[in-house]
Design a protein around this nucleic acid. Structure first.
Lengths: 247, 247
DNA sequence: GGAGGGCAATGTAGTAAGACATAGCCGCGA
DNA sequence: TCGCGGCTATGTCTTACTACATTGCCCTCC
């Protein structure tokens, strides 16, 4: 399932070509490339990190979709966030001997793997990269805040509208939206677990939103028919599009 | 309401005396002290940051309680987290021109104020402090994750149990628990807004937990009668007690 | 071609939680 | 001493959401 891939040189990183990420100096990119231990490719539904793991590694999702979650001891699961290319994984690990959450892929994915014991070197020799890592962490927190607002205070309909528009915008920025829509690899159980809803209620609410003509979903391709109405429904406020760091 | 206080030298910071925080070198403490622009004291219910603010400042809560929240345009409010002494405020601001959330005090509080344009200097000249800031950010995210798990997947009873034990443990670590219990400056509306519940339902659930003998709350003093039962109810997992950074 | 698994759709019934209204308590200030 | 505002308490009614059960569709695998 998991296997090593030939290591793509960071200088030719396909993500950097999208324009969504901020530039780095040659020295910084060399450092990242040197720190990058290997690259792995995994299938859909693979576990990258398990809850309670003590693996000391950091990852950058290079391609594919994944999600971060945690389960209660009786099996109830909450998805914290969905991960898209460029997202950084594993920092929480610094806080505890074990990983507080799990990470699982939704599609075939490739990931860059970094040993976490090089992290301190990174801060010491390239403070700008250290700053970038803080940025990425703060950004992740911002998204979780937003999800908490959804789950805590939005209705089921609003939550789904919010999730759709939010994922759509994030993917759009990475150039993942194609003419026939966005390939959305979530099933209804994922949506339910991300939004704190039951599977059945998610299904019914999705149908209602669909019947209202707000979106179409054919063969896993999502199209927002009326993004403005969707955004209004969700009380969505878009952050300005600025290049973001990439490690 | 807000007024400047005489600046406490960081070396004699009362928080450092609690033992809950990790040590810093003299040079680091000098840098922090130099970066600290001023100190402010505010009353209970003061707004430190408003949603949408464009103030470019960072804060450390030196004493008192506060909370971080956001409101939807129709007024529904979600509290993301409660802030205790030592918590760092304002980093999200780096991501956008405006502050995505508000911060309000629950008690009289004092805060250290740092200009955010010194932040880059901090990373450059004291990488270990940069690392600490990442740590604090990741830690905040961890707590929000936990809250999202509560609001998304725990029952009302479990949510309240979780909130109580979580706040209790955090406060305990800072030496804020006194023989007659912990001074808890939240009202039921705060609890409701943090847990995604209505005020009425919060009230009834509190009463039930109280009747079950799990806690007592007299004159704002919280005591956990049976912390183990509370923890079991909440499926609570405590992070190991390690010293944490302080800026 | 049939069995089986993963997923969406739908009906029914039950319940946890919300909405609304009201009342009591307490501290505070005029 | 009275009224007022902030907070907790409680009752009743409603509903959004969950739990459970079933059906149907589309794959894939033998």
């Amino acid at each position: 399932m998991t296997h090593m891939s030939p290591k793509i040189p960071c200088k030719q990183c396909p993500l950097r070509a999208t324009g969504a990420f901020s530039a780095n100096t040659d020295s910084e990119i060399e450092f990242i490339e040197h720190m990058k231990k290997r690259e792995i490719s995994v299938g859909a539904g693979s576990s990258i990190l398990r809850e309670g793991d003590d693996r000391k590694e950091l990852f950058t999702l290079l391609s594919g979709w994944a999600f971060r979650y945690r389960t209660l001891s009786d099996g109830r699961r909450q998805i914290f966030n969905f991960l898209l290319p460029g997202d950084f994984i594993g920092l929480q690990h610094q806080l505890d001997a074990r990983h507080p959450h799990g990470v699982e892929t939704l599609t075939e994915s490739t990931l860059c793997v970094f040993p976490s014991d090089r992290l301190w070197d990174l801060y010491r020799t390239h403070p700008a990269l250290g700053f970038d890592i803080t940025w990425l962490t703060a950004n992740e927190e911002l998204i979780v805040d937003e999800n908490l607002l959804s789950v805590g205070r939005r209705s089921a309909t609003e939550r789904i509208a919010m999730l759709m528009i939010h994922l759509y915008k994030r993917a759009e920025r990475l150039g993942m939206v194609e003419p026939d829509g966005l390939r959305l690899p979530l099933n209804q159980q994922h949506i339910a677990d991300a939004l704190g809803l039951s599977l059945v209620h998610t299904n019914k609410t999705l149908k209602r939103l669909n019947a209202a003509g707000l979106y179409t979903l054919k063969d896993g391709r999502l199209k927002l028919v009326n993004p403005a109405a969707m955004a209004r429904l969700a009380d969505y406020y878009a952050l300005p599009l600025r290049p973001r760091p990439l490690i």
